[in-house]
Structures are given as structure tokens and as C-alpha cells.
Design a protein around this nucleic acid. Structure first.
Length: 272
DNA sequence: CTAGGTGCCTGATTGC
DNA sequence: TGCAATCAGGCACCTA
């Protein structure tokens, strides 16, 4: 699942591959992939547009064009791949953009949950997102302020994109383990020390995962823009490790369902 | 406000 | 071996 570190890696790869390229043609293979505008307008507006920058906001990849922006949310299984236009298209490619250097930017998505948005201003899509957790100006004091007055379980709160942008199931679980906080813990019950631990844990986990170019699990389809897997799966302490020993104390990792999502934790290190 | 349920999808896994 | 049912999961959307 592409979360912040994976999307960051994809965006960085696309930046070097795509800046300065002009889009020659756009072909949509699965209409629902295009969230807006209508497919016909989407395909008509892209040819001739030049890609001037590529960035990330939350879990969105943002392709800034000379006119407007193309935002991509990869959801569960989406991939953005740059390949030669000669490479055969497989059935999961739902959008292909022909570039002026003979290559193609392809949106590949087996589950078809991913969406693309062609808009004038990226904020039209990202307006509801919370702060960027790894921004240099996002401090522990900012995090404490963000937590103030928040109710609900930590796991659900960390997954809420309006609270913080970019954490998903993997990194929410890993950050809670690193902070030694139980996923069912009420956000309003955290002591100042626990709030700071959670802030530091989020920083540490995300930054390390970005360095490792994201997490590629056996059953996950994440790869970067050139098709390469990430390396952070080697560092996972709890996610997808039900029944395996906690790296800190050896207790078997447990799995719970919270708000319809799986939550993995060490019952010894993360006490409620 | 939070919590819970449903739908969107398909490949992998499980059950018989 | 084959086929059907179940599951995973981000997020929008709905109800309590």
C-alpha cells in the first residue's frame, strides 16, 4: 500500500524522469480512474501540457503542469510507472500518457481504487488534509496542539488524513509500536511525555522508511516509478507480523480489528 | 465530534 | 482438481 514514504519515493523518481517532458496524448482505459473532469475533457486537455514539477502532498502524487495539475491517489494497489511506449500494456494499465521522448507514464492498478484528478489548483483536492508530519516546520509543539481536544483511539486518529496527512495502516502500526502506545489508547489520555514519544516515533519511522524507499511486502504491489521494490519491510516490527516475536521483547505480535482495519501490536510493549 | 457499516474492486486464500 | 465464499484495505458516504 503506498503511504507517505512510498509516495515520496515515487514522486522523487518521477521528478527526474518527467520534468521538462511534454504530454503528447492521453488514453484512459477505465473511465472511473478519472475522478475529474469528465474523461473526454481529461483526454482533450492533457496533450501539449508540459510537466514542470512533481511533488507529494499526503498520499497524493502531484504533477504540476504548465497549465493546471494532475493529482494521483494510488489507494491500495496503484502504481505510476515510466516505461518505453513499446513495452506491452497489461490489462491493469488504466491510463497511459505518451511523452515526447518516446516513453509513457502509466497508471497501473489491479484493484481499480486509485483515482486521478486534473485540476487548476491542487488545493481543490488536498484542501481537507492535515499537516505534513515530516515537514521541517512541523514541531513537537505543533503535534501537541494538534492532539489537543482530540477524542478517539490513537490508531484511528493516525489513519485520519485530516489529522495528519500520509500515514496509513503500516506506518500507523509501526509508529505506535515505536512510541510504545497501544492502538486502542484514547488520544485524549496521553501524557505530555507520551505525546512527545508519539511525535518522535512518527518522525523516526517515516524518515527511516523514506531512506529505505518504502515497504514492499510479498502481497503488496508497491514499486517505485522504475519498478523497483522498497526495503523497509526488513525493518517492520509489528505490521503483518501476527504471531511472530516482538523484536524488542519476543512476545508474539497480536492483531486486532479497529474501525474495520487491522492493527498489529506487541501486547507486552504496548499496554493499554 | 466519534464510531460503525457499506460499497468500490480483484487476486489470493480458505473451505468443501 | 475445481469452484464458491471470504478477505484485504483507503476512503467516500451514510447512519446512529
Amino acid at each position: 500500500m503506498p503511504e507517505l514514504p512510498e509516495v515520496e519515493t515515487i514522486a522523487a523518481g518521477l521528478r527526474t524522469l518527467l520534468i521538462g517532458r511534454t504530454i503528447r496524448a492521453a488514453r484512459v482505459g477505465w473511465d472511473k480512474t478519472v475522478a475529474r473532469p469528465a474523461v473526454a475533457e481529461f483526454e482533450a486537455r492533457l496533450p501539449g501540457r508540459c510537466i514542470v514539477n512533481v511533488s507529494r502532498r499526503g498520499k497524493y502524487v502531484v504533477l504540476q503542469l504548465d497549465e493546471g495539475s494532475l493529482l494521483v491517489h494510488l489507494k491500495m494497489t496503484g502504481r505510476l510507472l515510466v516505461t518505453s511506449a513499446r513495452e506491452p500494456l497489461d490489462k491493469h494499465v488504466h491510463l497511459a500518457l505518451d511523452l515526447d521522448d518516446g516513453r509513457q507514464l502509466r497508471f497501473h492498478d489491479t484493484r481499480k481504487f486509485g483515482r486521478v484528478y486534473l485540476v487548476t489548483d491542487p488545493a481543490e483536492v488536498t484542501v481537507g488534509l492535515g499537516p505534513e508530519p515530516v515537514a521541517v516546520d512541523f514541531t513537537a509543539a505543533d503535534f501537541r496542539r494538534l492532539l489537543a481536544g482530540r477524542k478517539g483511539r490513537l490508531k484511528s486518529l493516525l489513519m485520519n488524513q485530516e489529522f495528519l496527512a500520509g500515514l496509513g495502516n503500516i506506518y500507523a502500526d509501526e509508529a505506535l509500536f515505536a512510541a510504545r502506545l497501544h492502538p486502542l489508547r484514547q488520544a485524549s489520555s496521553l501524557t505530555p511525555d507520551e505525546q512527545d514519544r508519539l511525535y518522535e516515533a512518527i518522525q523516526e519511522v517515516l524518515k527511516r522508511a523514506i531512506l529505505e524507499r518504502g515497504t514492499t511486502l510479498d502481497d503488496s504491489s508497491y514499486v517505485d516509478a522504475e519498478g523497483h521494490a522498497g526495503g523497509y519491510q526488513e525493518s517492520l516490527a509489528v505490521y503483518h507480523r501476527t504471531g511472530q516475536p516482538c523484536p524488542r521483547c519476543g512476545t508474539p505480535i497480536q492483531r486486532l480489528v479497529i474501525g474495520g482495519r487491522s492493527a498489529h501490536f506487541c501486547p507486552h510493549c504496548q499496554v493499554l
